[in-house]
Nucleic acid binder design. Structure first.
Length: 267
DNA sequence: GAAAAGATTAAA
DNA sequence: TTAATCTTTTCC
């Protein structure tokens, strides 16, 4: 039998840049401590949901207060066409453990869509996609990356929304540890594989109900002012009609958007 | 049973 | 630009 060559990634690839001096943990609040970055050429615009304190550093005070008034979304929210649900997910919050992420970029996958995992019908992997909306659909991509989808529409339809990017709201320390990356820049959370990693989920979470408190939850959030649309990413195998469909959505002006950005336009 | 391909990422 | 990595699905 062929050798089972599992070349392990060198430890040097792990990018914990400051392991001996962990970021200070705040036990009394959810304030995010960040390092100033004086070398930054084009100073990144702080994302809109962060407030800045006197030192110009983002805090989560706004988000914490905001979320206290917000509730978990009910199953009704999800029982619509994935094309309608996708933009409505922008601005909403994913919560697990102490991590809260605000959704900034999504893609819709629909029935009769040659790019949708449901295109082969119900299989062991894709069964949750055909269940009622409001559940997670989680799968492994390229044998490495855990992809989180939100199942849309009614039972039997077969539609879902891929979460492609988020902005951190709280639990930055946990996010950074899970990502093996100390950063507060978009590289931390732009890309679907990074979302699954930051949330600490595996395919075991597939079919998990997002409307039940206690595990992985979807909470309400502010509606974005402007939205960008574009073709979906990485589906060249699909028919031209579906390759070209503008079923990718993002919050306009947010830095928390994955590549390629230049295919996104106002609707 | 075997083989191909994949809703990607990080590093060169 | 390319390697890494392995599950799922299809094909014979």
């Amino acid at each position: 039998m062929n050798k089972k060559k599992r070349i392990q990634r060198p430890k040097t690839a792990i990018k914990i840049t400051n392991p001996t001096k962990p970021i200070k943990k705040s036990t009394t609040s959810t304030t995010i401590i960040v390092k100033p970055n004086p070398k930054s050429k084009s100073r990144a615009k702080p994302s809109s949901h962060f407030l800045e304190n006197d030192e110009g550093l983002p805090t989560t005070s706004y988000s914490s207060n905001y979320l206290e008034k917000n509730s978990i979304l009910s199953p009704d929210f999800y029982q619509i066409d994935a094309l309608d649900l996708a933009p409505r997910l922008l601005g909403k919050h994913l919560k697990k453990d102490d991590v809260i992420l605000q959704i900034t970029e999504v893609e819709a996958y629909r029935p009769n869509d040659s790019a949708c995992h449901g295109r082969f019908g119900i299989t062991a992997r894709t069964a949750p996609v055909f269940g009622p909306g409001g559940h997670a659909y989680v799968y492994l991509c390229y044998g490495l990356h855990t992809m989180l989808n939100v199942v849309a529409d009614k039972e039997g339809i077969g539609a879902a929304v891929l979460i492609r990017s988020c902005a951190p709201v709280s639990g930055l320390e946990t996010i950074q540890r899970r990502r093996n990356l100390i950063s507060e820049k978009p590289v931390l959370l732009t890309g679907p594989g990074k979302i699954g990693q930051a949330l600490g989920i595996s395919k075991e979470w597939s079919n998990h109900p997002l409307f039940v408190p206690g595990g992985l939850e979807l909470l309400d959030g502010p509606e974005p002012e402007e939205i960008l649309v574009g073709p979906r990413v990485g589906i060249e195998y699909a028919s031209p009609e579906h390759v070209n469909a503008l079923w990718r959505f993002a919050i306009a002006g947010s830095p928390w958007i994955s590549a390629p950005k230049n295919t996104l336009r106002p609707p």
